[in-house]
Amino acid sequence: MKPFTYERAASPAEAATAAARQPGARFIAGGTNLLDLMKLQIETPDHLIDVNGLGLDRIEETQDGGLRIGALVRNTDLAADARVRRDHAVLSRALLAGASGQLRNRATTAGNLLQRTRCPYFYDTNMACNKRRPGSGCSALGGYSRQLAVVGGSEACIATHPSDMAVAMRVLDATVETVKPTVKPEGATRKIPIADFHRLPGDTPEIETVLEPGELITAVTLPKPAGGTHHYRKVRDRASYAFALVSVAAIVQPDGSGRVALGGVAPKPWRREDAEAEMSRGAKPVMAKLLAGARPTEENKFKLPLAERALAAVLAEAKG
């Protein structure tokens, strides 16, 4: 790891301001993604701001019957929360399908949303990668692309977003709450719908979210329970402790209508509300719209039929 200095922030607004003051600073939460990347010198912050002591670790009910999940709530605690299990089960299921028990005990809500891609070339510092070194090229195009995106990518980058949790949050219409490092007024806040939070790569794949430098996530809110049956189906190379090749998060209502988002296929959780009009007609018409414009590689085109079959299995499960 490159040398860095370390501080413990005293309040969310101070954390954001401290981060904005030092361009090379990063927040550290669970550390399970950041430290991994720092050891490989893919991330090289010169200052770390520890946000673990900010009291952002509670799950509270909101006035409109939803939940406000603190940015520092650990993945284990979020998955095990009785209200989440009962009313937002797709979120519990997605979290429990990710990483390992040890990692979920440290990983946080905000850190999980901001985890970086698992593209093998992003991890290999000897290889060209536009996301790691802008302008160096993309080794995955024409390279080993089995795990990578089939839709939403660009000529510059076809990486996927690896989070399971974020796919469930997309289907639940979550909102990301932040505090900005603005000087005046100190600590201005904003609310970002999860649909707008992650960016598509375009020609700047190194910019992955709409967060501004120093902007701190304080919470993620869920609207009132969506009802229906909740499903998260993850297809991967082994039964546990592996990232998704394809995952399906779905909420299905008794009349067959519902919502669906996909993981493992795109640079962000992939959902298209217009595709959901087809839900009661089955997986095929939904996927035709949801994956319209897909540009898979020779190595990952298997994800298209795989996603359709995974959704078909979910719809069959929902019928009981």
């Binding site: 550290i28 550390g31 399970t32 520890d50 028990g101």
Partner: peptide, 19 residues
Amino acid sequence: CTVILDGRRINSCLTLAVM
């Protein structure tokens, strides 16, 4: 590297001692 930190198992390789 699994240890038990404040009652919970974690990977001690992915956390800093100063935290």
